[in-house]
Amino acid sequence: MTESLVVIVRGRGVRSRGGEIAPAVLARIYERGLGLLTGQTGAEEALRTLFAPSDKVGIKINAIAGRELTSPPAVTLPFAGLFSRIGIADRNVVIWDRTNRELRAAGYALNADGPGPRILGTDTAGVGYDAEPFVHRNIASRISAVLTDRVTASVSFAILKDHGLAGVTAGMKNYFGAIHNPNKYHDDHCDPFVAELFDAPPVRTRHRLTVLDALVVQCHRGPAFHAAWAAPAESLIFGTDPVAVDAAGWRLVERLRKEKGLPTLAEEGRPPLYLQTAERLGLGRAAEADIRLLEDEV
């Protein structure tokens, strides 16, 4: 079996200490990262291999931690803009999370029906959650109608963080924000729930790409922002194997923790067990030996 490819691209200076994004550096990260991931020359060609012009693309972000620790519009809007280059109209691209309140708090201007990519929470009037719980293994949840009604292809654009319960929160756990009852899945380090939710057909069949925002990584005491343990990694991580890209993210978190003199997540009793569960479910590959990690810098 071939290895799963994960690409980490670092852009020095992509984010200032004050949080300002350098657009030109960011654009180069997208071009390089998506190109390396797909073996294409750049982002446009890369996206053509992953999406069709007829797709409606959902970009699921994680805005729980406010402006200090959410992928900002300056990062996600340029990514959303790439889809117009492959024939997907802006109105068919939606940046979303669970609530408008959290999106606004993270600096997003909501856009339910205006020009440009849509930006909305599941709580937008007329959206909501599916009426009946979707039952799959240990999961029984209403799923956001953004995902089930408005999207044919999903990108998990997740901020990479330490997580007090799951160990890390990355691309797979980002879909906890796509259901109405994530609080019901915190037992046992969120395992097997993270993997089983991802395995649920409404998620699994739509997911195409993970982009982990590792510009600043909260490597301890996540998911909220704690300045002492927020490490500027200046990187984005790309992968189509959802397990491999999360595993790579986890290893980056461990590396940053080590640099700060922190114990490993396993030593703290909270390794991301969901990765092994996800591998057992056939969702991807978690072992370091099974992942080909390409690291580059722009």
């Binding site: 729980i64 931690a65 406010g66 997580h163 007090g164 319960l165 009852n181 609080n183 019901k184 915190h186 037992d187 005491r221 996540g222 998911p223 909220a224 704690h226």
Partner: peptide, 25 residues
Amino acid sequence: PDREIECQLCPRKCRLGDKERGYCG
């Protein structure tokens, strides 16, 4: 420490980081 809490209301004793919600929702 570090803005964590532990709920003592029910036997679950949810231990939660900042911004997190208990099992009860």
